[in-house]
């Protein structure tokens, strides 16, 4: 049951299209890289594929069916700025367990320390917060995960560790991954296929 975006187009101000006619497909277990200039609509496209906004044109389907509102979203999105994706008034343990309770193995894979769970989001660094966002997205019901500049705020060692753990889990569960990044070296390392958004 592939994730397919057909004929996608979007604008924020009427008739000023950010992108048009985008066709994308990701198979279970596939790793697809998205690249393009900043401001070309990569994040908007990610939000459309995850079902958070409706495209002005075209449609998104998972296994032939359109994405349902008010249900668990099979396409999970990991945002570029974790500090903006976490409720600042919740403790980290509440953030972590909102949709499911992750196993200790997963917490260990992303090196989330127990002492962080009692803290407020403001008391953790961007990289530490992002690990929570990743674990949160790895709900057992997730079929696809979109990683929008997931590790740009991390140092190289942590980046390598996180991608290693993340892709291992995705592979074992046959989750399809869309990697949004500007870093060509990273995309070439981890992706099966690449797609470039926008005009050259």
């Amino acid at each position: 049951m592939p994730l397919i975006g057909e004929n996608l187009g979007y604008y924020y101000q009427k008739e000023r299209w950010i992108f048009k006619d985008i066709h994308l497909s990701v198979a279970p277990g596939e790793v697809l890289g998205l690249s393009g200039y900043s401001g070309c609509g990569k994040t908007t496209l990610s939000r459309i594929l995850a079902g958070y906004i409706k495209p002005r044109n075209g449609r998104v389907t998972v296994g032939g069916g359109e994405l349902k509102r008010n249900a668990f979203r099979p396409v999970q999105l990991i945002y570029q700025h974790p500090e903006k994706a976490i409720n600042p008034k919740w403790r980290m343990e509440d953030v972590l367990t909102e949709s499911y309770t992750p196993s200790q193995d997963i917490l260990d894979a992303f090196e989330i320390r127990d002492e962080w769970l009692k803290r407020w989001p403001l008391e953790l660094s961007g990289g530490q917060l992002q690990r929570f966002c990743i674990v949160r997205a790895l709900n057992p019901a997730a079929k696809y995960i979109i990683a929008d500049e997931m590790t740009t705020m991390l140092d190289a060692i942590t980046q390598a560790k996180i991608w290693n753990a993340f892709l291992r889990i995705c592979r074992s569960r046959n989750i399809g991954v869309i990697v949004v990044s500007h870093e060509a070296a990273l995309l070439n390392r981890i992706c099966d296929n690449l797609y470039k958004v926008g005009r050259d």
């Binding site: 393009g36 070439n188 099966d192 296929n193 690449l194 797609y195 470039k196």
Partner: peptide, 20 residues
């Protein structure tokens, strides 16, 4: 698994064609 042997063609750019 190294991804290289699972490359597909079609609509998508192949690896290395990333020219930015």
């Amino acid at each position: 698994r190294i991804a290289a042997d699972r490359r597909k063609s079609g609509l998508l750019l192949s690896k290395g064609a990333l020219d930015f």
